[in-house]
């Protein structure tokens, strides 16, 4: 089953596909410039020692962004039906 959640709520090593980036202006531009656009597959690589920022694996490379920036990114993830 597929579910849409905010990037902030993703767990470490969880995979997902970006479905929307809901922010305009500088932040939105920056997020898109760095390749975080709908259809992109990402994996959460880890989080900083204080849980923020978060590091993402994207197309074989690593990006990092703050949790409050991740809030604007909506991701589609696979969830087990058993849950």
């Amino acid at each position: 089953m597929l579910e849409r959640i905010s990037l902030r709520r993703m767990a470490k090593n969880q995979r997902g596909t970006i479905t929307a980036v809901k922010v305009a202006g500088d932040l939105g531009r920056r997020i898109r410039d760095m390749g975080l656009v709908p259809g992109t597959e990402i994996t959460v690589q880890g989080r900083a020692p204080l849980n923020d920022p978060v590091a993402l694996r994207i197309r074989g490379n690593t990006l990092t962004l703050r949790n409050n920036e991740a809030d604007f990114i909506e991701v589609e993830i696979e969830v087990d039906k058993a849950d």
Binding site: I31, A55, L63, E69
Partner: peptide, 12 residues
Amino acid sequence: GAPTPFVMELPP
């Protein structure tokens, strides 16, 4: 002013 977006690369 709002914080400058942090989004950045962790280069190899």
